[in-house]
Design a protein around this nucleic acid. Structure first.
Lengths: 224, 224
DNA sequence: CGACACGCTTGACTTCGGTTAACTTAGCTC
DNA sequence: GAGCTAAGTTAACCGAAGTCAAGCGTGTCG
């Protein structure tokens, strides 16, 4: 059974890879709030555990075993988040930290139980896909709203979950996963994006729009 | 914030005291599955933290701060157990281990939330009282069924929660907290106790009867 | 092409919680 | 009251995960 520490490193490697492609020592040190030497040392350990492959000075890659472990922890995290929101009435800006701790300490049985109680959900409250028990995950197809150039009707798929403040802001604006929005225009000089959300016009800074991920609206998703 | 290890020691001291009166090094070593020197060393640390008072070779006693910490952890444990059973459908023989891990990792907010969702309960599924947030606990008034000598009508208050096998046995017999039973007789030569439970006669070994705690039936608790 | 800067790794040390082995201490026995 | 035994403690050490300081490797630039 891997330690919480090992699990955190593996998860951070997975996420750095997903966000960046590359996985540098320094990157991990920042994500995990530890020093670079701590990362270096842990890389040797994870390598010995066959969870990563690591050519010194060349960065790091998860093995299939490492990826499976990462996905299992992420599955825990997202199931817990969803359970806290849906079954216990926590608000979505408030569950990340709790899940961050609990994800390391629940049993397989607990995992299965909440999965079942939630009806085998496929996404967490912030829209991130929930990996399967088998260690697979739906591919990400959405793009940051900030990169959208032309007016369009869009579906909010995901929002970044790490900034509680920002989540409350999104909620106030109605920008939540599963909501159809319309990108109207962007004000000049990198100004805010103007959106139509549920009939209302709202403005969103490019900063914030980087943390919202959207897809084109498909016919099956209809829309208003 | 105390480490899980510190919390486990403090809880073990509390329970050893409650069960035994005395709290010897060896006793703790056995409860915690560590060596006696590990206990000795930790006692010095807990003493420095003002959680216990410790005269070498003379045993150990919780300070009020230590007692409060113990009760907080026990509160977590029992609330979690009850939540698992009542809200999530776990069976009562199956929740001790899960609670044993989670008790160290939930937030105050989570604690308050389950307390509220459960309607501010006063006992865990095995009948143990749940301490208050303020660090008080209802005094134990029940006695082991094994010590009852004469036929009587009794109320099952608590059963020991650490042996899953035994819990399943109690459940099969209908011997659960809140159930009124009648002690009919004890078969000779330290033989099993004969009980009436919900109309049926059942037999319980003295071994098992040590793990069942009963009170005289009060008028308010009514009849069988 | 050589030098340099930056990033990565190694080394020496810390803290925490544990181990075994060796030694005290307390309490009983005679 | 001397001596023994069992329990408790101290000492020396281990592994995990971290720190800081110092030493490599690599890619870039003059």
């Amino acid at each position: 059974m891997p330690s919480p520490s090992v699990e955190d490193y593996i998860k951070a490697i997975y996420k750095a890879h997903a966000d960046n492609g590359s996985v540098a020592t320094q990157e991990l040190a920042e994500r995990l709030h530890v020093s670079a030497p701590a990362v270096s040392k842990m890389m040797r350990k994870l390598s010995a555990l066959k969870l990563i492959s690591h050519a010194p000075y060349q960065g790091v890659k998860l093995t299939r075993a490492g990826e499976k472990l990462a996905l299992e922890i992420i599955r825990h995290h997202r199931l817990i988040e969803l359970y806290l929101v849906q079954a216990m009435g926590f608000s979505w800006d408030n569950v990340h930290e709790e899940a961050e701790r609990l994800e390391h300490h629940i049993s397989e049985e607990f995992e299965d139980k909440i999965d079942e109680l939630l009806g085998h959900p496929t996404a967490c409250p912030h829209g991130d896909p929930i990996p399967t028990r088998a260690g697979t995950i739906a591919p990400i197809t959405d793009r940051p709203l900030a990169l959208e150039r032309s007016p369009a009707r869009l579906m909010v798929k995901r929002v970044s979950d790490e900034d509680a403040e920002l989540l409350r802001h999104f909620q106030a604006l109605g920008v939540t996963p599963g909501t159809a929005i319309e990108l109207v225009t962007q004000e000049p000089f990198e100004g805010p994006l103007v959106l139509k959300v549920g009939g209302k016009r709202v403005r969103l800074t490019p900063q914030a729009a980087k943390k919202v991920f959207v897809d084109a609206i498909t016919s099956s998703e209809g829309g208003k």
